[in-house]
Nucleic acid binder design. Structure first.
Length: 562
DNA sequence: CGGGCAATAT
DNA sequence: GATATTGCCC
């Protein structure tokens, strides 16, 4: 499946760093446009003279990703020429006058769009689409150099496989909602080439909208009823709803919101309208500095979504989509509350996410605990071969409640351990792969094996798993793979693998390496010390078996019979 | 009512 | 198969 325009619509801030050639004889107009573009973080090169522009293009086509060219009745001829010369550069024509003939000719000559002046923010904001469109439709061969990075970047962001165009998960890709968090993101203005992912901390939530649902059950983000709590940081959960029957995308312009289609085949039962709705968090955090350019319109200028999909007795289940952000919030809540206090209702209260129900939380909590149970005991087993002698009643090691700072670049727990957020910073969440791991590590955890091995690449998992500070030897490494390309397990292993190789001398056995990699791939949530041989479940079992312990109680089993 | 777990659904 | 929802028990 190929990436469709729909997939791209939400990347509102993608264009940062995109280079725009602006050709406009009207200097004041040019200045104005330039200013706007620059506010949007495009990089603008202004030309008043057509020939200069052409020269610039011919010299360095790769310096531009998209062009905006003013056309008048006087200069139209030259502009047409420009279009022909610059046919590899997505060119938007603009003019004060609307002349159908001119428009037609421009388009015919390859202009991607004709915009009437004045060029509003709206018009300008999305000009990047042409670059992306070109990038994806020009075919690898004649794809101009300037657009390749664009393509790569987009591919990265969409978690597509590069190369063979096997854009696998394009449909399953869920855009992540990112609170353009308060922090320190690397603001390389032109970073698009280097760090595509971080570049888009502004990536806003993607909401899957399926047509025809009742979106407005209890939880609609649009529900203005008792809107969010009076508080300042409430998020809300947005539910997309509707049946899975064919749906068309509705592109709303509300900032940070992407309505994305879920093209599921309706192989569903004919009669039974299986309306699967998902609720994804849509941070409409007012606090967010995110609204940089803010949408001119109301932050929530609902465009039809709620209105058109609002009714329906079809009150089907709203499936909560635990986006990383939502999850993160959840984890934070749990951590803040402390394990003993972490019960659904409190978590719910703490999270302040509109639309979430206690049940949702409970469910998630259940999974969360399951994961912990699955993971921690295993690590414990490594230390204490006899799993049958649990030292604690609780599966959740107690840890002092700690107050997280509002930002997540790093947290320091009372014990001095440094905690990192799941993915470097919220903006760089590279995938929709949920990573489950312990939110709390037992105090003992980091003290032995963990510390002995360099493990700079992976700092934490989604659960806010603590990580050790970077060893000096790897101090120069980035906090986390910054490249969204590394989104899926195999690739995410890159970092680990690198470490692995570094510690090759410690464990030269290739099988070991393979095993480690395999397991790491299989269980991406495991922040395993790579230098250390991480036993797979099987190997653990085998080892235990060798030691006379035929099996270990399944962690999945209920704690106590009912 | 609400927590927690298993069963069920998607 | 993983996740989320439902159902049921306490």
């Amino acid at each position: 499946m190929v990436c469709t325009a729909n997939d791209l619509l939400g990347w509102r801030d993608f264009p940062k760093g995109l280079r725009v050639l602006l050709l406009d004889e009207d200097s004041s107009s040019a200045a104005e446009i330039r200013l706007k573009l620059e506010e949007m973080e495009y990089i603008v090169s202004t030309f008043c003279d057509e020939n200069d522009a052409l020269t610039a293009i011919s010299n360095k086509l790769e310096n531009f990703h998209v062009a905006i060219v003013e056309v008048t009745t006087q200069n139209s001829h030259g502009r047409f020429k420009f279009l022909e010369v610059a046919k590899d550069l997505p060119t938007i024509m603009t003019s004060n006058v609307q002349c159908l003939g001119t428009m037609m000719k421009c388009i015919a000559l390859g202009a991607v769009e004709f915009l009437l002046k004045p060029l509003s923010d709206e018009k300008l904001r999305n000009i990047w689409q042409h670059a992306v469109h070109k990038a994806f439709n020009a075919g690898g061969k004649d794809l101009s150099e300037s657009l390749k990075p664009v393509k790569e970047s987009v591919v990265s962001m969409l978690h597509l496989e590069l190369g063979n165009g096997e854009a696998m998960s394009s449909i399953s890709v869920k855009t992540e909602n990112e609170t353009a968090l308060e922090e320190n993101e690397q603001e390389h203005s032109a970073g698009i080439y280097k760090y595509p992912a971080p570049l888009t901390p502004q990536l806003k939530q993607g909401l899957r909208l399926v047509d025809d649902g009742d979106c407005q059950d209890q939880t609609n983000c649009s529900s203005e009823k008792e809107s969010m709590d009076q508080d300042e940081e409430s998020k809300s959960v947005d539910i997309t709803c509707g049946n899975v029957v064919d749906e068309n995308i509705v592109q709303t312009s509300p900032p940070q919101v992407l309505w994305e289609t879920v093209n599921k085949d309706e192989d569903e039962a004919p009669g039974g309208c299986k309306s699967e709705s998902t609720m994804s968090s849509c941070l409409q955090n007012k606090d967010g500095p995110s609204d940089s350019g803010g949408d001119p319109g109301s932050p929530f200028k609902a465009s039809g979504i709620e209105t058109s999909y609002g009714n329906k007795a079809n009150r089907k289940k709203l499936k909560v989509d635990w986006t990383p952000e939502l999850h993160k919030k959840f984890v934070q809540a749990v951590e803040k509350l402390g394990v003993d206090q972490a019960i659904p209702s409190r978590i719910l209260e703490f999270m302040k996410v509109q639309g979430l129900t206690r049940h949702n939380i409970a469910s998630h909590l259940q999974k969360y605990r399951m994961q912990r149970r699955h993971i921690l005991p295993k690590e414990d087993d490594r230390r204490w071969p006899n799993p049958r002698a649990p030292s604690q009643r609780s599966y959740y090691p107690q840890r002092p409640v700690m107050a997280f700072p509002p930002h997540h670049s790093a947290h320091t727990s009372p014990t001095g351990q440094v905690y990192y957020p799941a993915w470097g910073h919220p903006g760089s969440y590279p995938s929709n792969v949920q990573m489950w791991g312990p939110a709390f590590y037992p105090p003992w955890q980091p003290t032995d094996n963990w510390h002995s091995y360099p493990y700079p690449a992976v700092h934490a998992d989604a659960w806010g798993c603590p990580v050790i500070p970077q060893p000096p030897t790897h101090g120069s490494l980035p906090p986390f793979p910054q490249n969204a390309n590394e989104f899926h397990s195999a690739k995410r292993m890159h970092g680990r693998y690198g470490i692995l190789q570094n510690s090759f001398d410690l464990h030269p056995a290739e099988e070991v390496i393979d095993k480690v990699v395999k397991e790491a791939i299989t269980k991406p949530w495991l922040p395993l010390p790579i230098g250390l041989k991480p036993p797979s479940t099987d190997s653990v079992l085998a080892e235990l078996s060798k030691q006379g312990i035929p099996n270990i109680p399944s962690p999945i089993k209920r704690k106590h019979p009912r």
